[in-house]
Design a protein around this nucleic acid. Structure first.
Lengths: 224, 224
DNA sequence: CACCGAAAATGACAGCTGTCACTTTATTGG
DNA sequence: CCAATAAAGTGACAGCTGTCATTTTCGGTG
């Protein structure tokens, strides 16, 4: 598992035609590791081993363990942001529909790459430069954007007062949890990350629940 | 910070009157560490240092690093369960009210000891004996209990169909997140863990949101 | 008072980690 | 064709980790 290329590389500079080191794969493996074991718990030597690269390739290429972390997180977040934006630009409909679509798409994307959520969980417990980076460059801006949508909806009377921060935690760390905490999710029998239709159904259901709430008025009509 | 007793202990068996090693404090520090850095990332030597105990006290007392983990988690979960039960036994009111009270209390207790939620986040990503332990002994049974309440409410027509697992993730990992992911929560300006009234207000608000939903019907009445 | 067990600390060890310095090979420019 | 540079691997090092083995001290009992 994880060995991206089986062979060990020869000692010198690789021949021209040969495949160079796949930094994309390296960053993906690194992100996975950081998500699984946290920053302290991750061994960059192990990451190197998994992509069949010399034990300090990342040090020469990225500078240090922390720089590798930044590179991996930046890449993943950029991809997520691009994907989200691309999926939502051509949607000029109702504002509530736009909100619903954003949330659903976010959950679907979380299923596609749960490592980022895991890294967030690992870093969000205490302050530090890594959390600063994530918040300042990605999470804060995103929260600002959907915050304005929320305020617009509130002014239009379509929404109760909803704290954007609370919504963020509920969606990213709550609704997204079954897709990032796969071990626990399996025990609960939740939809597998690898079953896109099931994930999509789940995403719509949670968002519906968040927007619509659980409780029904105490029965003017009997249950069918 | 962390040094529970300042002095280093003398070499032999401690004199009769002297305070024995405070295993409770040790387990608390250990849980905090496991929550902050994950199992792999936690150093039992560091835990020992923080409670001013010899570098392998835990090995002699608990057997191994993993046994220390089990002891710490068991203790914390038992306390949580007892506290929850004690707070909710004398509440025979309406079923919806009981549900609301359970959820609110759970969030308040999470604020009091966020380490357990962090440990859950750290372990829930992949299967293994530690996750098994948590699920089999605590989370599964708890989910069963509130599952029956949910079904009863559904049959009474008071609730839409709500998957207990989804609710668990939304409450424990979503609503609880601002109190366990304190670093990120601070950036969002969420209520500090150490301000119980604010936490209580927050708890009621989120639960209200979960039960009542966000969206209002498109304005038969204008907003006040 | 001498002895045995209990409760703790200390020593030792192999293995792993992040980083630095170096070596090896291949490409490229003159 | 040869020097310079680029792109990788190897070696070495101090520091830390989990665990096992040993040592020290104290309390209780004959």
């Amino acid at each position: 598992m994880g060995g991206v290329s089986g062979e060990r590389r020869p000692r010198g500079r690789p021949p021209a035609g040969s495949r160079p080191v796949d930094d994309g794969a390296l960053l993906a493996v690194a992100l996975e590791a950081f998500g699984d074991d946290g920053f302290e718990g991750t061994s960059v030597r192990d990451v190197c081993r998994r992509v069949a690269v010399s034990h300090n390739y990342v040090h020469q290429r990225f500078g240090s363990k922390e720089d590798l972390w930044f590179a991996a997180v930046d890449r993943a977040f950029s991809e997520l942001a691009a994907d989200l934006a691309a999926a939502l630009d051509p949607d000029p409909g109702d504002d509530v529909e736009r909100l619903r679509a954003v949330l659903v798409r976010f959950i679907e994307l979380s299923a596609a790459s749960p490592a980022l959520l895991r890294v967030m969980n690992a870093e969000a417990t205490r302050p530090g430069p890594r959390l600063d980076h994530m918040y300042d460059r990605f999470i804060g801006p995103a929260a600002t954007v959907i915050g304005t949508v929320l305020r617009r909806l509130e002014r239009a009377g379509r929404l109760g007062t909803v704290d954007p921060a609370t919504l963020h935690f509920l969606v990213a760390h709550g609704a997204g949890a079954p897709l990032s905490l796969t071990g626990l999710a399996a025990k609960f029998g939740m939809p597998a990350r690898s079953d896109p239709p099931a994930v999509s159904r789940y995403a719509h259901d949670v968002v519906e629940l968040l927007l619509g709430g659980m409780v029904r008025a105490p029965s003017r009509e009997e249950p069918s």
